[in-house]
Each structure stands twice: as C-alpha cells, then as structure tokens.
Measured scan of single mutants.
Amino acid sequence: NNDALSPAIRRLLAEHNLDASAIKGTGVGGRLTREDVEKWLAKA
C-alpha cells in the first residue's frame, strides 16, 4: 500500500524505478524501511 510509504522511501523507490509491491517490508505492520530497499537493491 503506497499510503504507508514514507516520503524518503517513495523517493528511494522512484530513484531506482522500483515497485514497492516487489519488496517485502519488515517494518511495523509490514512497512518498507530503507534497509529493506537497500537489501533488495544489493540482491538485484
């Protein structure tokens, strides 16, 4: 759900042209964290 994304995470996803639904969030309530996105980028 994009409503649950912080502005910083939205920007990070946009910079790398990523789809938030492709990344499993580990934050509160399954929210994406910066670490989630960075780990996903490291694997890609």
Rank of each mutant, 00 (worst) to 15 (best):
G27P: 01
A42S: 13
D36S: 00
N1S: 14
G30A: 04
V37P: 00
R10G: 05
G29P: 02
K43N: 14
N17T: 05
V37A: 04
I9V: 12
S6V: 05
N1M: 11
L41G: 00
V28E: 14
A4S: 14
D3V: 09
E35M: 08
N2L: 14
L13N: 00
T33A: 01
K24F: 07
N2D: 14
R10W: 01
W40G: 09
S21P: 04
D19K: 08
S6G: 09
A4D: 14
E38P: 02
E15I: 11
A14W: 11
D36T: 01
K39F: 12
D19M: 08
R10I: 15
A44G: 08
S6L: 07
L41I: 12
A14D: 12
R34I: 15
K39L: 10
I9F: 06
N1H: 12
G27F: 02
L41T: 02
L32I: 15
S6N: 09
A20G: 09
T33E: 03
R34K: 14
N1L: 11
R34E: 13
A20W: 09
G27E: 02
H16S: 03
L5P: 05
K39W: 12
H16T: 01
E35A: 11
W40Y: 15
K24G: 06
K24H: 11
S6I: 06
A4I: 14
K39E: 15
K43L: 14
A20H: 08
P7R: 12
E35P: 04
R11Q: 13
R34F: 15
V28F: 08
A22R: 11
I23Q: 02
G27N: 02
T33C: 03
N1F: 03
G30H: 03
E15W: 07
G29A: 08
V28P: 15
G30M: 01
A44Q: 13
D19A: 06
L18R: 02
R11K: 13
W40N: 10
G27R: 02
A42I: 08
T33L: 07
A44L: 15
L18S: 04
A22D: 13
L12I: 12
G25Y: 00
A14G: 07
A42R: 09
D19Q: 09
S6E: 12
G30V: 02
L12R: 05
L18A: 08
K39D: 15
G25A: 07
R10P: 01
I9S: 02
A8R: 10
E15F: 08
A8T: 11
L13Y: 01
P7K: 12
K43S: 14
N2F: 06
T33K: 04
E35D: 10
L13R: 00
W40E: 15
H16N: 05
K39Q: 13
H16R: 02
K43D: 14
V37I: 15
E15Q: 11
A44S: 11
N1G: 13
G25Q: 02
T26S: 11
A44P: 05
I9K: 01
V28I: 12
N2E: 14
T26L: 05
D3P: 13
L12G: 01
A22W: 14
I9T: 06
L5T: 06
H16E: 02
K39P: 03
V37E: 01
K39V: 07
A22Q: 15
A22H: 12
L32P: 05
E35Y: 08
A4H: 15
L13C: 04
A42E: 15
L32N: 00
L32Y: 03
R34W: 15
L12P: 00
D19G: 05
H16A: 04
T26H: 04
K24N: 10
G29Q: 07
G27I: 03
H16L: 08
D36F: 01
L18W: 08
I9Y: 05
A14H: 09
P7F: 02
G27V: 02
V28A: 12
V28R: 10
K24T: 12
R10T: 08
G29L: 07
A42W: 06
P7G: 09
N17V: 05
D3N: 12
A22G: 09
L41W: 08
A42K: 14
A14E: 15
D36I: 01
W40L: 15
G29M: 07
G30W: 00
I23D: 00
V37D: 00
A14V: 09
L18C: 02
W40S: 15
R11N: 10
N17R: 07
K43Y: 11
G29Y: 02
E15Y: 10
L41Y: 07
L18K: 04
I23F: 01
P7M: 07
E15V: 08
D19E: 10
A14L: 09
